[in-house]
Design a protein around this nucleic acid. Structure first.
Length: 419
RNA sequence: AUUCAGAGUGAG
């Protein structure tokens, strides 16, 4: 029975709610599921970012008369936390209180993680105090999470402060904690500090993984030090660490930014020939490179080839192919591909909107730009400043001053910060 | 036994 529960969580990590659900059904034939079993399934829904499914499973759990435990509440908070549904997450916390279930360390970790990702630092402070008051001890993992959040927000100073806090608390940092600090420096372009963290890690005899190298490569890439990207990639290989999807995509990006099109193509072809192949993000990076050069045929060929190889195009892929068609004025094709995107249940976003609008503007079709703006916002896309700006410049191209002013007014009405 | 932490791709 316990083996089944472990199996569920392993399947969840391997990446499929479907597989988890199937295994659950199999198991149900022989055993009666308990809270642990349901918790594992709910957690799988969190990984798949499926709130609806998670809620369904909570319902099933109730129908099955299995009482939710602290793990269930924590998992559910995790489900909402990942989607940044603060109110829902807090609601669960209140429900816990009313049922006499006490928040534990993981409850706080999950909530802190959510607030950190959302950059709601005040809430982080409040929760932290509450946690300390309750005598819940922070572990390395929560410091990784918060230092990572500060890093993403390019607040290296805050990341440092929390690192010191961790040291004062006597918590021993692990590889993930070091990596979050490394990345904090990387994101703030503090290359030398990142390098010295790396040295400190080396002194501690950590075994670096591809993720660690990936952080360094990404930092050098963003700082335009493409030679360093290459040499760290080589260093990784020398140390017997296999490149993964992310280091591959960083390598492609770096080559795209530094070399000519042909050498990037060669690099990409070489990756395709290897047994690992490349993932959708790397395909997307390559497609974006062609798109930038307005090489429609290449983008479309790439698009076809990736499908042939069984890599599922995502919303970014479609955004790029629709964009490149629009760039060169092939709007019927763009329209067809856009429809295909919807048929595949992929959600258009504000970036796609701004691209489509500016492409119509570029080709002096402001009416079409406006039409698409309405169509997409009607479909639930929330336009940002870029979208409004694209629409305004489309209108201004044909000297529609008052219309552009109206758009400007609409933008301010939406409460958007004018930049 | 189950529930929490670290890196990559597209727009004006």
């Amino acid at each position: 029975f316990a083996v089944y529960t472990v199996l569920l969580s392993v399947l969840a990590k391997a990446g499929g709610v479907k597989a988890v659900e199937n295994a659950f059904q199999e198991m149900k034939k022989e055993w009666r599921p308990n809270a642990f079993t349901y918790n594992a399934v709910i957690s799988a829904c969190r990984k798949a970012e499926s709130v609806g499914k998670a809620e369904e499973w909570v319902q099933k759990m109730k129908e099955d008369r299995v009482k939710p435990d602290i793990g269930t509440y924590n998992s559910l908070i995790g489900v909402y936390g990942k989607q940044r549904m603060v109110e829902k997450a807090e609601m669960i916390r209140k429900e816990m209180v009313s049922r006499g279930v006490h928040a534990d360390a993981r409850t706080y970790y999950t909530l802190l993680n959510m607030y950190g990702e959302m950059e709601l630092w005040d809430e982080v402070g409040v929760l932290w105090e509450e946690m300390e008051k309750k005598g819940v001890r922070a572990e390395a993992c929560i410091f990784s999470s918060l230092i990572g959040a500060f890093g993403k927000a390019q607040k290296a100073d805050m990341a440092e402060k929390w690192w010191e806090k961790m040291e004062r608390a006597g918590v021993e940092p692990n590889l993930k904690t070091f990596c979050s600090l490394l990345n904090a420096y990387g994101r703030s372009n503090l290359v030398e500090r990142a390098e010295s963290v790396w040295q400190a890690m080396k002194a501690k005899k950590f075994f670096f993984d591809a993720l660690s190298y990936g952080i360094m490569m990404d930092m050098y890439f963003r700082n335009g030090r493409h030679d360093q990207v290459l040499s760290w990639h080589r260093e990784m290989g020398r140390n017997g660490v296999r490149p993964n999807d992310i280091t591959r995509s960083t390598l492609i990006m770096s080559s795209a930014a530094s070399g000519d099109l042909v050498s990037t193509q060669k690099l990409f072809q070489g990756m395709l020939r290897s047994w690992q192949g490349v993932d959708v993000t790397t395909w997307n990076s390559m497609a974006a490179l062609y798109c930038k050069h307005k090489r429609v045929e290449e983008v479309l060929n790439l698009f076809g080839e990736m499908k042939q190889r069984g890599v599922k195009p995502d919303a970014v892929t479609y955004s790029t192919v629709v964009d490149v068609c629009g760039k060169v004025g092939r709007f019927e094709e763009a329209e067809r591909l856009f429809q295909e995107m919807l048929d595949r249940d992929l959600k258009p976003d504000s970036q796609l909107l701004s691209k489509v609008v500016s492409n119509y503007g570029r080709h002096n079709q402001p009416e079409k730009a406006r039409e698409w703006f309405q169509r997409l916002t009607g479909a639930g896309v929330v336009p940002n400043v870029n979208c409004f700006t694209a629409l305004m410049s489309s209108l201004l191209k044909t000297e529609q001053y008052s219309e552009a002013r109206d758009v400007f007014g609409d933008m301010r009405e939406q409460g958007l910060q004018v930049d």
